[in-house]
Design a binder for these strands. Structure first.
Length: 684
DNA sequence: AAGTCAGTGCTTTTT
DNA sequence: GCACTGACTT
């Protein structure tokens, strides 16, 4: 058993004996440690672990917190402790109380499926209004934004499509567009209803609505829950607040957050949930944690300087308990291949000369896309790495193919899964699939699906598929269902993905089976499995270590987006491409709030470093930008150069280096063909 | 009607 | 690498 040491502020929060508490904790002040110790403290003082629920933003964070609480307790004492994301928690509640939430046999749809549904709804209806064309994906975004922020459709359209402009032209365009959008969104909602789909937002909405309206629901839940511990409170949005609000009367809230690290406003996050905590929650207190234990003072000086330049007053000045260390480095490069190679050099040098392990390194990027060249270089130079925040395991095409069969067994109304599964069969395309689907839909409730399939597809194909369907339906073990489905589909899969079948995709199916086996029912696998993150190790999928024992090679560099790196820390932290147009991103330039959010993104990145902080930047984009002033709104004097976050940085905050050209010439480096670096190598 | 392939354009951030 | 398109074959 291992107790975490606390300072007086942390201890005060951990041992808080009032009703509700918000802990405002700056970066590196021991936020995670405090929430972990709080859970352990509650259990130690006699609270039933099954009545504590920890809520976080990612499954990874949830798992990590629960594991660390357990290691703080005598063995098996914390086994009943629950940690989940808002979404998976709601999903669990819906599964556990089907009658309460009225969602008996439903399927959770992921963003890909949402898009497919929206495309079906739009059909040939191209939303074109003069210059403005609205894509199905944008409709989904507007819909989700409106529901998460509780804003009207008009407001959501204005913010998402018109950058929040409020002039007469915008108002006119809005009035033209709105009725069309409304029709499509209503059709989308109707389709979800018929096919028993719940999208991510529905999961929260179903639970929040029921809790708000139904006293019985509150009574039932209050019997099973005493403490709610919420991590990253600054990233909760109005919908999530609507979900939390009823619990004020049901249990004790313990929330931790930092307004300077709020980086999810694109998803509707609203730091009012932090600022108005005391007003909204009766019987509540707010504590602050201000001593930074993570970083050396030089790293905090740079972070403080960045935040101080903001027009927003965060009232934050981090001070290091640890004292002084290395000055942060700013590495000037001319292109991303040079940058990637420099990063690889640095890491290899630290590994061999400085006795640092690969896992002491965290490489952060604004976007997932930007790490592509870095990954290519790491593979070529044999640096082990994992990526966080990439495409989900369950979203991969070959996985979705197989899962489509399980989905139609689980929910025969699942149109998307039907189409996917049927068109997977050789000789069946979209037209025939729709026809077969039509027969399934028209069949009366409770009709025998295998029989319908048999009739819809005369001949051997029909009977094969029909038998497969019944045979899977009979199984009770989810892993066995995966096996059966794989046996039937592997030939087709191997052919369809023959290009990278042996190297990449084939190996995912044993992983899928392992994942499936960890769920008691098919419904839970399909619902929650979707919400489960995978990480990629050197380009191939692995599931979180708790599920798969990957003891081999735990030493690897972590490559992550800043958004996925919340809560992470590392000895050496490298922030890629801190260049104009990236910080702030060129998308944000004419929106002040977006610029400030980008500033917080960089702030989060900088404060991950414990001892060595390295920023890289592309000098070619600096000179390009300095020569050009952006067209700006009347009266404003903004330009890329002026809004660039490192503009005007005092010389003493960083040590600059400029890397001489060393690998090939500029033309070579700029050719995208460089990706071929990886193809000729030995993967063993 | 279904399948294949080469060419094109496009890539914020996440549950 | 990805989704999508258009032209082609089966």
């Amino acid at each position: 058993m291992h107790q975490e040491k606390l300072n007086s502020g942390q201890r005060k929060a951990v041992e808080f004996s009032g009703k509700h508490l918000l802990v405002l904790a700056g970066a590196g002040t021991g936020k995670t440690k405090t929430i972990i110790s709080r859970a352990a403290h509650l259990i130690n003082t006699g609270v039933d672990p099954s009545k504590i629920q920890i809520l976080t933003f990612t499954k990874k964070a949830a798992n990590e917190i629960v594991e660390r609480v357990k290691s703080n307790l005598p063995q098996s004492q914390g086994n009943a402790l629950n940690g989940a994301t808002f979404h998976s928690w709601c999903n669990q509640l819906i599964v556990r109380y089907p009658n309460l939430f009225g969602a008996a046999s439903y399927t959770v749809v992921d963003p890909d499926d949402q898009l497919s549904i929206m495309k079906m709804v739009c059909g040939n209806n191209k939303l074109e209004f003069g210059k403005l064309r609205i894509k199905p994906q944008q409709l989904i975004d507007v819909y989700s934004f409106a529901r998460n922020t509780k804003k009207s459709l008009t407001q959501a359209l204005r913010i998402k499509l018109f950058k929040n402009k409020e002039d007469a032209d915008t108002d006119y365009e809005l009035s033209v567009i709105k009725p069309h959008v409304e029709n499509l969104l209503r059709a989308y909602q109707a389709k979800k209803g018929i096919q028993r789909y719940l999208d991510y937002d529905d999961l929260l909405l179903v639970v929040a609505t029921q809790l708000g309206n139904n006293p019985e629901a509150r009574t039932i839940l209050s019997q099973n829950l005493d403490y709610l511990l919420v991590d990253e409170m600054q990233d909760t949005n109005p919908l999530q607040w609507q979900l939390l609000d009823p619990f004020v009367h049901i249990c004790h809230l313990f929330c931790v957050g930092d307004d300077a690290q709020s980086i999810y406003s694109f998803r509707g996050a609203d730091f009012k949930n932090v600022h108005l905590f005391k007003e909204r929650v009766p019987d509540s207190e707010v504590y602050k944690l201000e001593k930074n234990y993570r970083s050396t003072q030089e790293i905090l000086d740079l972070s403080n300087w960045l935040l101080k330049k903001s027009p927003i007053d965060y009232k934050k000045q981090l001070e290091s308990i640890r004292g002084n260390g290395e000055i942060p480095q700013l590495i000037n490069v001319t292109d991303e291949w040079q940058e990637a190679n420099w990063v690889a050099d640095e890491i290899l040098k630290n590994y061999t000369d400085e006795d640092r392990s690969f896992s002491d390194h965290l490489v952060l990027s604004r976007s997932q896309y930007y790490t592509k060249s870095l990954q290519a270089v790491f593979i070529r130079r044999k640096i082990p790495y994992v990526t966080y925040g990439g495409r989900k395991f369950m979203q991969a095409a070959h996985i979705k193919d197989l899962v489509s069969l399980l989905r139609i067994v689980n929910n025969p109304y699942d149109e998307i899964a039907w189409i996917r599964f049927l068109t997977f069969q050789e000789g069946i395309g979209e037209v025939r699939a729709s026809r077969i689907l039509q027969q399934v839909i028209e069949a009366t409730e409770g009709a025998d699906i295998p029989e319908i399939l048999q009739n819809a597809m005369p001949g051997e194909d029909g009977s094969k598929i029909s038998k497969l369907y019944s045979s899977i339906k009979e199984k009770t073990n989810v892993g066995a269902m995966v096996d059966e489905a794989y046996e039937a589909m592997s030939l087709g899969l191997a052919f369809r993905y023959r290009r990278d079948w042996d190297e990449k995709r084939k190996g995912d199916f044993p992983v899928l089976k392992l994942l499936a086996q960890s769920y008691p029912t098919l419904g839970e696998f399909i619902g929650e499995g979707l919400l489960d993150n995978a990480e990629q190790m050197n380009g191939t999928n692995v599931l979180s270590e708790s599920k798969l024992n990957t003891d081999e090679d735990k030493d690897h560099v972590i490559i992550s987006t800043v958004h996925s790196a919340k809560g992470l820390e590392a000895d050496v932290c490298i922030v890629l491409n801190v260049s104009p147009k990236a910080f702030p991103s060129s998308w944000s330039l004419d929106d002040l709030e977006a610029i400030e959010e980008d500033r917080r993104v960089l702030y989060v990145a900088l404060t991950r470093a414990k001892n060595r902080l390295i920023l890289t930047r592309n000098t070619s984009s600096i000179s390009a930008v300095h020569n050009r002033t952006l067209p700006s709104r009347a009266g404003e004097k903004t330009s890329d150069a002026e809004s660039y976050f490192l503009e005007g940085m005092p010389d003493n905050l960083v040590e600059q280096k400029t890397i001489a050209q060393q690998f090939g010439n500029v033309q070579d480096a700029a050719t995208p063909n460089t990706i071929d670096l990886s193809s000729g190598m030995d993967f063993s």
